[in-house]
Design a protein around this nucleic acid. Structure first.
Length: 182
DNA sequence: CTCGGGATGCGT
DNA sequence: CGCATCCCGAGG
């Protein structure tokens, strides 16, 4: 299974989000390897998206979002969990896809239903912020083809974002047991 | 510098 | 619904 290349990420964010479903997220750490199948994601559509961290312009935290596609944007939330995004679209568009849930494949002990648990189970934290997903530590690979239906729903936890909160930018694999908040 | 709140998850 | 727990980002 090949690693996804730069051009995969350098596309329309909703397309990347949908196509990430079913792919494999791999964290090859020191001596241990963790992997899971991506089953739930959310799209964040650039600076005009009021729910996006990039909506108030470039800041210290969201810097990776403004960089080239194919990089990881990892941030701390509520003082105790990390969330991982993959940066999409050409540099400067400040768009990304949040990885919300995985189906465990390899080396995973904890739960993976939800962005915070996903990062904990995959041992993903601030150290991996800005990491290139075309490198050898953290990356996403193609998967064996499988048929599934994709469900679209409003994103979780962004009620403050007005009209943007209503848009169906959360995507998940229909019927999958590892999807959060079904 | 202070201060309010957050792309969460868990227990009540 | 409350809360843990801490960093970010806005404002003075």
């Amino acid at each position: 299974m090949g690693k996804l290349d730069r051009e995969f990420y350098n596309r329309d964010t909703m397309t990347v989000a949908r196509e990430l479903l079913g792919k494999y997220l791999v964290h090859a750490g020191k001596g241990c390897r963790r992997a899971g199948r991506i089953v739930e994601v959310e799209a964040y559509l650039g600076q005009h998206d009021k729910a996006s961290h990039s909506s108030r312009g470039r800041t210290a935290r969201n810097l990776p979002m403004f960089g080239p596609p194919g990089m990881a944007y990892v941030y701390l939330i509520y003082g105790m969990y990390y969330c991982m995004n993959v940066v999409t679209e050409p540099e400067g568009n400040a768009s990304a896809v949040l990885l919300r849930a995985l189906e465990p494949l390899e080396g995973i002990t904890g739960r993976t239903q939800g962005p915070g648990l996903l990062c904990r189970a995959m041992d993903i934290d601030k150290r991996l912020n800005g990491c290139d997903l075309l490198g050898d530590e953290l990356y996403i690979t193609d998967a064996v083809p499988s048929n599934f239906r994709i469900v679209r729903r409003p994103r979780i936890g962004v009620d403050y974002a007005g009209a943007w909160a209503k848009r169906h930018l959360r995507f998940y694999i229909a019927g999958n047991a590892y999807v959060s908040r079904k």
